[in-house]
Amino acid sequence: MFRDLARTAVRWVGQAIPVPICAPSVRREVILVRPDHLGDAILTLPALRLVRQVAPGLTTTLLAGPWTAELFAITRVVDRVLPVVFPGFTRRPSTDFTQPYRLLVHEAARLRRHAPLALVVLRDDHWWGAWLGYLAGIPIRVGADHPTLRPFLTHPVPLRSEHVAARNIELVRALLRLLGYDPPESQPTANDHPVVWPVDRAAQSRVWARLVAQGIHAPFAVVHPGSGAAAKCWPEQRWAALVDALADLGLAVILTGSRSEQQMLEAIAKTARATPLVLAGDLSLAELAELLRAASLVVGPDTGPLHLAVAVGAPTVHLFGPTRPERFGPWGPATRHRVVRSPLECPRCGDIGPIRPCGVGCMMALSVERVVAVVQDCLSKGLSG
């Protein structure tokens, strides 16, 4: 409570301090700010591609966390990426109240040397990014019309769309219009603005060599049980039951996750009757993408690798509990990317903070039987083809 009040007071002081506007350089550089991790970063790709398509003469610089550096190196949707260790996104506790503001001053000085023409904040509530543009003296600053951003923006944008990917597209369209371009006016859709992930033949070869060495051939399913937020996860026993159901349907099963999730994956494998292959932190992002591309089905909660599976075109089943699929669901055809939504809603819907554990009520309300029924329906309709 005290920290929230202090943060509000600091922002109020910050917006009251006049900052001189920098004359933009001849490069016509645009700064795009996306602090989030894998899933939200993937949902930014259609908007970044739109900038490239409509305004190829702009120099695009993305401020992104080091945790998404590999993603943007693979997709090459911007001219360059400047890594920023964004406060509040490190997934590590912090006791230094001053650190976000010291970093803000440092990064503003760095941007000032770039002398960009404009900045767009690609997250509705990212006041730190908006304040960064203000302190850097960037002439045009675009972001969502959110009360914490509004004082730092020259052009707050009322957003009409619900889905994060569509909201990103609305924001870059607003920026492009301000710069004299003519982007489309229609409601953004996944059909018009798909998430695209390039094929990596070398990564494909490495993945298949590994699978063959483990005795796995198509068809196989990938189950990715983990998430950066524990509240979005299912208990290990339910994942084990799903692994057995997939095996009973004739699929080999691969469990994927980070190195930190290895213990969880091994517990699922040990509980299951079947013998899934466990890949915990063993794959690069490019290799994970190619593994998912080859899968007959990918199942998991609302998490980054499920959005990656959508990007590579794999059939997917997404388990949604405390988050809303209308906002964070798969950005692709609903017939190919299925959502299993919890029937239970509570006042804490949307709360995926670190104090909420695995096994919250809405996730527990998703039965194994219901998820298996959706999986069977996907497979019976041949979505893996």
Score class of each variant (00 low, 15 high):
residue 10 V to D: 05
residue 15 Q to F: 07
residue 16 A to C: 13
residue 16 A to E: 15
residue 18 P to Q: 02
residue 20 P to I: 08
residue 20 P to N: 10
residue 23 A to C: 13
residue 27 R to L: 11
residue 41 A to M: 00
residue 42 I to C: 00
residue 43 L to D: 04
residue 44 T to V: 03
residue 50 L to H: 03
residue 52 R to E: 03
residue 54 V to M: 11
residue 56 P to A: 08
residue 60 T to F: 03
residue 61 T to V: 11
residue 63 L to V: 13
residue 64 A to D: 02
residue 70 E to M: 01
residue 71 L to N: 02
residue 71 L to M: 10
residue 82 L to Q: 09
residue 86 F to W: 10
residue 87 P to E: 10
residue 93 P to F: 08
residue 97 F to D: 04
residue 106 H to L: 11
residue 107 E to N: 13
residue 114 H to D: 13
residue 117 L to C: 12
residue 120 V to P: 13
residue 120 V to S: 10
residue 123 R to E: 14
residue 124 D to A: 15
residue 125 D to S: 11
residue 132 L to Y: 09
residue 133 G to R: 11
residue 135 L to T: 04
residue 147 P to D: 11
residue 149 L to C: 15
residue 151 P to Q: 12
residue 152 F to R: 10
residue 152 F to S: 14
residue 154 T to L: 07
residue 157 V to A: 07
residue 160 R to S: 15
residue 166 A to C: 10
residue 167 R to D: 11
residue 174 A to T: 11
residue 176 L to D: 14
residue 178 L to A: 14
residue 186 S to M: 15
residue 186 S to I: 09
residue 191 N to F: 15
residue 192 D to R: 06
residue 194 P to R: 03
residue 199 V to G: 00
residue 208 W to N: 05
residue 213 A to F: 06
residue 217 H to C: 05
residue 218 A to I: 03
residue 221 A to E: 04
residue 224 H to N: 10
residue 234 W to H: 09
residue 245 A to T: 07
residue 245 A to L: 11
residue 261 E to C: 01
residue 268 I to E: 03
residue 269 A to H: 10
residue 274 A to N: 02
residue 275 T to A: 13
residue 282 D to C: 12
residue 283 L to N: 09
residue 285 L to S: 01
residue 290 E to C: 05
residue 295 A to I: 02
residue 296 S to C: 12
residue 296 S to P: 09
residue 298 V to D: 03
residue 304 G to C: 03
residue 304 G to K: 00
residue 309 A to D: 03
residue 315 P to E: 00
residue 317 V to G: 05
residue 319 L to Q: 04
residue 320 F to D: 02
residue 320 F to W: 08
residue 322 P to F: 01
residue 329 G to M: 07
residue 335 T to F: 11
residue 338 R to G: 09
residue 343 P to E: 07
residue 346 C to R: 14
residue 348 R to N: 08
residue 352 I to A: 00
residue 352 I to R: 01
residue 356 R to I: 01
residue 357 P to I: 00
residue 358 C to N: 06
residue 360 V to D: 01
residue 360 V to S: 01
residue 369 E to W: 06
residue 374 V to Y: 08
residue 374 V to G: 13
residue 375 V to K: 10
residue 379 L to P: 07
residue 381 K to M: 14
residue 381 K to R: 15
